[in-house]
């Protein structure tokens, strides 16, 4: 099966309510939100990452995220931002190899929100954890507090930002779960780009959504479950 067809097959199976209108425009009809309505607490956006489908030499999700959010590299890996990264794992016990993307886990009880002195780190009603750059003072305490290393600090002046994704020097940033796309009823860029169907996006609160059904039937886990942060990003095929 070619990459395109497998992706179509995935999308078709993803949800009965999902319709592909044109390449790149996918509507989640049931969950599209009118522009003048605030995000609702009835919804909790989340992701299920099937690590068995995620290949070590694929980083399509990372590339799509970088393009969507205008994340450029300055050739300085230590300070270049990474909202999503591919992590390769080898089990010390069995030698089993795994590869998976790690990004902001959009915790129900996010430590970054707790520690932020000004309230710039916050959680939207629909569970998406964001940084309000208007009041971020760049103290980086959230980066100290995040158990997933999910945040980056903008270490230099930026130009050519994407209009839908403002970012600038001196503030902390991280995965927004593509809130700007989700609000329009589109999939996050990484989920859309994932040809193998390893990233399933949906509403955790809707018992009929595919993600909720899969979470009920498949064994899944969160990263660092002992912290009891109840993350919105779950992993299948990974036993911690």
């Amino acid at each position: 099966m070619s990459a395109t067809t497998s992706r179509r097959a995935f999308l078709a199976s993803a949800s009965a309510a999902v319709a592909t209108l044109a390449p790149g425009i996918t509507l989640i009809a049931a969950q599209a939100k009118p522009a003048d309505q605030p995000a609702s607490s009835a919804v909790r956006w989340g992701m299920l990452i099937d690590t068995t489908r995620c290949s070590q030499d694929c980083s399509a999700c990372v590339g799509a995220c970088n393009v969507e959010n205008g994340l450029g590299s300055h050739g300085r890996p230590q300070t270049d931002p990474q909202w999503i990264r591919k992590v390769d794992l080898t089990s010390k016990r069995t030698g089993q190899k795994l590869s998976l993307p790690v990004m902001c886990q959009h915790c129900e009880k996010p430590p970054c929100v707790d520690v932020c002195p000004t309230g710039a780190s916050f959680k939207r009603q629909d569970g998406i954890v964001l940084v309000d750059r208007h009041i971020c003072i760049g103290c980086r305490y959230c980066m100290m507090a995040c158990p997933y290393k999910a945040r980056s600090f903008v270490h230099e002046s930026l130009e050519n930002q994407r209009p839908h994704q403002p970012r600038g020097k001196g503030c902390v940033e991280g995965c927004t779960l593509c809130a700007h796309r989700v609000d329009e009823g589109k999939l996050p860029a990484c989920a859309e780009a994932c040809a193998s169907g390893a990233i399933l996006f949906g509403d955790l609160n809707d018992p009929k959504s595919e993600i909720a059904q899969k979470l009920r039937t498949l064994p899944t886990t969160q990263i660092r479950p002992e912290l009891k942060l109840n993350t919105a990003v779950r992993y299948g095929g990974l036993s911690i």
Binding site: C116, P117, T118, G119, F153, G170, C171
Partner: peptide, 25 residues
């Protein structure tokens, strides 16, 4: 050392009371 030291006023006027950092201020 802040990323945005020009926002001192924000740090002085907006408090998140769950933050130990805000309490320190």
């Amino acid at each position: 050392d802040l990323g945005r030291p020009d926002r001192l006023m924000v740090a002085m006027t907006k408090y998140n009371f769950r933050s130990i950092f805000a309490w320190n201020v």
